[in-house]
Design a protein around this nucleic acid. Sequence first.
DNA 1: CAAATAACTTGACTTAGATCAAGGTCGTTT
DNA 2: AAACGACCTTGATCTAAGTCAAGTTATTTG
Lengths: 248, 248
Amino acid sequence: MISPPVLKPASLNCIDCPIKHRAVCAYCEKSEMAMLEMMKSYKTYPAGSPIIFAGDRMKFVGSVVTGVARLSQTMEDGRRQMVGLLLPSDFVGRPGRSYAAFDVEATTDVILCRFERKPFEKLLKDIPHLRERMLEMALDELDSAREWMLLLGRKTAREKIASLLIIIARRQNAVQDETHTDVQFDLSLTREAMSEYLGLTLETVSRQINALKKDNIIALEKKRRVVVKDFARLLSETGDDEDGGFLV
Amino acid sequence: MISPPVLKPASLNCIDCPIKHRAVCAYCEKSEMAMLEMMKSYKTYPAGSPIIFAGDRMKFVGSVVTGVARLSQTMEDGRRQMVGLLLPSDFVGRPGRSYAAFDVEATTDVILCRFERKPFEKLLKDIPHLRERMLEMALDELDSAREWMLLLGRKTAREKIASLLIIIARRQNAVQDETHTDVQFDLSLTREAMSEYLGLTLETVSRQINALKKDNIIALEKKRRVVVKDFARLLSETGDDEDGGFLV
DNA sequence: CAAATAACTTGACTTAGATCAAGGTCGTTT
DNA sequence: AAACGACCTTGATCTAAGTCAAGTTATTTG
């Protein structure tokens, strides 16, 4: 069983939804009527398929309901860097812009709750609540992009891997207690996808993951499932401040 | 003479200001009266001085009027990564959050137009126009953070340097014509600051800059002034798509 | 269920950039 | 104008991560 993902506080999902920890689109059940009248549709993208390419015309925006998608950028010679990891409740697309700036690709099967862009933009004008949420989401994304920049610019390969594992574990609600051992979660990313996230090669990713295994910090199971055997130790391998949480 | 900086389209500055290309705070001259009633003050920070440290209580938000500031993150062992370069019109601080998430430091002398955070947050609620601008600014920042991630994760040292030079040249309005030669601008950053921006060491920065000089692509003048002798060539050294501009 | 394919591991070797260590320039201070 | 300090350059050496090249293990498909 896959643990339910952590919904970001300012997501579009679950705004008024009674089911607090499942990813159901905003306004699906009740609340602002206008939203209901808008063209809204769910679409499933199979694992590995493109959702949109950089430069394509963007007809919709939306949010991830289930699955994992990624936002990435490609250089002419094929070098690729992931610039966003999209988990349930994350927003896709930029209101007010008609062309995509980045590639979006489904990593696992993805269900997207889509809104036509134009009517969504109109709603954004009309519903202050929605605009506030969008601002909060953008600022949260910006903060995590900036932490990611520290990772890319300054961390060692091992620190990068440890950081990624912890980010994914946390977003999957797998971590109840930071001192807990045997935290389990689905990685859902291939070695190549991880290397694109971390600015490494897939060989380096493989070596570092196996080094963590050899040091008895994690164990690897079938189907890209990870068991963290020593969470505190994994945390200390990230290079991050121990008490990053004191910032309210 | 220093060229006037490029104001981002969605900045708080110059919203209705008749002087289009000087950095004057929003509403300084006219427009929304509420803004005038708010506690607003200008403060000058000398080059090299801290504006705020990560974790400090944030009493104000504001925007850069003149000068260059930087946003950075520090690891316990002293590794530092710049995560934002703040030029005139850029916003500092996060409304709705009481503690700073990153260090902010003046690189050159900086004049900041500051607003007390609480009343600013109230204004943000009341003036839709302002909220829209904040959203636009956040999304622009997010886009540039993501491009920066590609730079940090995948570019070579030479590509990083070329990219930085072009970003700074563009933001200073120094580039009228992309094919133009003899584009001149103030770098305003020490080798160390550049190395923190690019995820390199200062020695590597120095070597790469001198390599560009040796290849007759740039020339270095007194007072950190740079002359680009072959702009097209510099552009081609960034590794970026030639025609990134087709996205409207 | 076997064959095919995709994903992962591991080893040997290379290299871009880091590190360590002097010196050299420039601008400011007395 | 000498002396100081901050900034920059350059060389020699080291090393973390990249590259190339087989193999091995999972997962999917016919």
